[in-house]
Nucleic acid binder design. Structure first.
Length: 448
RNA sequence: GGUCCGGUGGCAGAGUGGUGAUGCAGCGGACUGCAAAUCCGCGAAUGUGGGUUCGAUUCCCGCCCGGACCUCCA
């Protein structure tokens, strides 16, 4: 039985995943707001969703993966103003970096990567529907969603209307009917980017773009919607309200998967705390595959403390995997994902369990079992690991200087000059490389 | 304050109503000129007090501790 079980935030329970249309599974992930480099929290989100997509592709003939780019945002506007540039030039770099950084983590690109700036007609169409349906109103140039008009509002995030009022901030705009009402459209001053609309020149609110883009590319009802759990409220609550109210009778996303925030040195990583770890900075210190493995070492719904020690361990685990593959040169990936890896993944993406399975296979491969090595590669395909050859993994680019020292060491060992041999090994280690002797006096170099 | 989640060996981190994965680290042995890698073996954990049960780490309640959301954030 290959049944996928996922924890659905909507029902707060694990459920057997059943596609709306098994011929085309449709999934949406909230993508980046492009004004800066991606951080490692973005990376966790993307890596986990990447594994889900890879798994779904094993189970179903077609999967449509949509991940948006938010390129309309006040932070972007602020940068544009500071630099005196149009927003396209502000977002261009961050979009390119995002693709590069996620690519370094072996995250597959989405099938469709819509941008907010390309979906103004859909955004405006949804807002018009909401006004027509009595779920939105115009006030002082703004269009606002009326939470009171939606009896289901708050159910998704588990909030009562009373709580919403209690939680509202002091500076509630006077034109709001209810404190919880949120902006669908807001006016732009001449110095800000804006688009023409029935309500004048302005720009969309934060939540409406996801409703518009998922509608355009996946329809009013689709299978899976993902994001970080900090988006449950208000972002996802509001998306649901907008989409379901704009399209009466529809249910928006059926299954919601949210990954937990990660911690840095035991503290939540957040914009206000200013303790962000930039993904690209981490990638300067460790291979992308090691970063990816570190993100997979804990379950996506539990907290993960991102640490340098963890990164070192992740790298050592990969060393072991690649050594196992190295024992079987030329082995090809098996066609099926091994049971010891597939089974944990099917159970709500238990990546630590899956990695445990890979370790078992590595044991077998090191003991001489070629089929275990083939199974490891198949597991790598669904996990997004073991993407390079063992030679590439270990060698990296070994400087000529290090190779020269190693050659001298071989000579010294032939002469039984072990003092010199040890001195050379230390010299090699000082340059960040390790040397391993093999049978017959040969040696192997690797980064240490 | 409201809502929710979690507390597992030295560290990281899964599963499970009935002998507690996996990795890193540590210890002993084999191998090695010495190492490294590899192999064999070892030690080591379920926050706390009750309850349900033949039996609880697992289910229920209290307590303590930690974290998240309620505000831009993945």
């Amino acid at each position: 039985m290959t049944q996928l079980t996922l924890y659905n935030t909507r029902t707060r329970a694990k459920e057997v995943f059943t596609p709306i249309d098994p011929a085309n599974v449709r999934a949406y992930l909230c993508g980046p707001t492009v004004y800066d480099r991606a951080h490692i929290g973005n990376a966790r989100n993307v890596v986990m969703f990447d594994i889900l997509i890879r798994l779904l592709r094993r189970l179903y003939p077609k999967v449509t993966y949509v991940r948006n780019i938010t390129d309309i945002d006040d932070k972007i506007n602020n940068r544009a103003k500071e630099r005196g540039l149009p927003i396209e030039q502000v977002t261009e770099g961050p979009i390119r970096w995002y693709h590069e950084d996620m690519g370094a983590l072996y995250a597959l690109p989405p099938d469709i990567e819509p941008r907010a700036t390309e979906h103004l007609p859909e955004i405006i169409a949804i807002i018009e529907r909401l006004i027509a349906n009595g779920h939105a109103y115009v006030a002082e140039g703004h269009v606002l969603f009326s939470v009171a008009s939606d009896p289901d509002y708050g159910k998704f995030s588990g909030r009562t209307p009373d709580e919403l009022i209690a939680g509202a901030r002091v500076d509630v705009a006077p034109y709001k009917r209810d404190a919880g009402d949120f902006v669908l459209w807001k006016p732009s001053t001449p110095d800000l980017p804006g688009w023409d609309s029935p309500w004048g020149r302005g720009r969309p609110g934060w939540h409406i773009e996801c409703s518009a883009m998922s509608w355009k590319h996946l329809g009013t009802d689709f299978d899976i919607h993902g994001g970080g759990d900090d988006l449950i409220f208000p972002h996802h609550e509001n998306e649901i309200a907008q989409s379901c109210c704009a399209f009466p009778g529809s249910h928006f996303a059926k299954t919601w998967v949210h990954n937990r925030m990660l911690l840095v040195n035991g503290e939540k990583m957040s914009k206000s705390l200013g303790n962000f770890k930039v993904l690209n900075d981490v990638l300067q210190t460790a291979p992308g595959e090691a970063v990816r493995l570190l993100l997979m070492r804990s379950h996506y719904r539990s907290t993960l403390d991102f640490s340098d020690a963890g990164l070192v361990e992740a790298r050592k685990e990969l060393d072991r995997f690649y050594r196992a593959l190295e024992a079987h040169p030329g082995v090809k990936a098996a066609s099926e994902v091994p049971e010891c890896v597939l089974e944990p993944l099917l159970d709500d993406l238990n990546t630590p369990g899956a990695l445990s399975g890979v370790h078992g296979l590595a044991d077998a491969a090191l003991a001489g079992d070629a089929s275990a090595a083939a199974a490891m590669l198949a597991a790598g395909h669904v996990l997004g690991l073991l993407n390079v050859s063992p030679a590439e993994w270990f060698a990296g680019d070994i400087p000529a200087e290090v190779q020269d020292l190693a050659a001298q060491r071989v000579e010294a060992r032939k002469r039984k000059d072990f003092a010199e041999s040890d001195r050379l090994r230390d010299a090699i280690a000082a340059l960040g490389y390790a040397v391993e002797d093999g049978p017959g006096g040969t040696y192997k170099l690797r980064k240490s």
